[in-house]
Design a protein around this nucleic acid. Sequence first.
DNA 1: CTACCGATCGCCT
DNA 2: GGCGATCGGTAGC
Length: 196
Amino acid sequence: MPGSKDHAITTSGNLDRSFFSRDVEQVAADLIGITFLVDGIGGTIVETEAYCKNDPASHSFKGLKPRNAAMFGPAGHAYVYFIYGMHWCVNFTCGDGSAILIRAIEPTSGLAAMAVRRGVTDKRLLCSGPGRLCKALGINARFDGLSLYQPPFCLTYSQPAPSVTRSKRIGISLAKDSPRRFCATNSNYLSRPVSK
DNA sequence: CTACCGATCGCCT
DNA sequence: GGCGATCGGTAGC
C-alpha cells in the first residue's frame, strides 16, 4: 500500500496472525481503533487495559485456575469471566498469563440489536463499559476460550490509528497506580473520563 | 459533572 | 463470611 492515496486515510483487513503474540501493553495500545464485531455487531475499540501474570491486579497473578485457563492458553483467544454476580467481561489473550480487558467500544454496527439487548437507546451508553459491551454484543461464558480469528468474532483494521492516551486502570484495588489503561484520545464512548 | 449505594453470585479463605 | 477488572439509580455540587 505504500504510495496508495487511501493509505493515509484508512486501512482495512484482518489482523495479522501474530498480532497478539507481542508485549501485552503494546497490543493493548494497538487495539485502540480496531473494529471488533461479534456476529456482525459491534464497533471500534476505544478503551483497553493490560494485565499480566506478575501483576497483582491480574486474574492470572495467583496462577492457573479453571476460571482463568484461557489466559494461560494461546494468544489471540477470548478470556470471558463473570463478575459481581451479574456482568460478563471479555479479554483478548496475549499468551503466558497476559490478556487485555476490552473496556469500551464506539458502536458502529448493529445499533438496533445492541439497543434491544441493553435496554437503552443512547448510543453513548450502549458499549461504554466492559459489562455493557458484553451485553450489547451478546458475549457470555460460551465464548470463553474461542479463537478471535474465527466466527463469531471479527477483528479488522478499519481506520487510521487514533491518538492513544495512557492512564491508570479502573475498578481495581491492587496496583492501582500502574498506567496500563489505553484510551482513544477525546473519545465520547469511554467507560469513564481519563482524568481522575 | 462526581460520589455513594445496593444488587447479586461464583470463588476464595 | 468477604470480596470482586460493574452497573444503574439517586443525591448533591
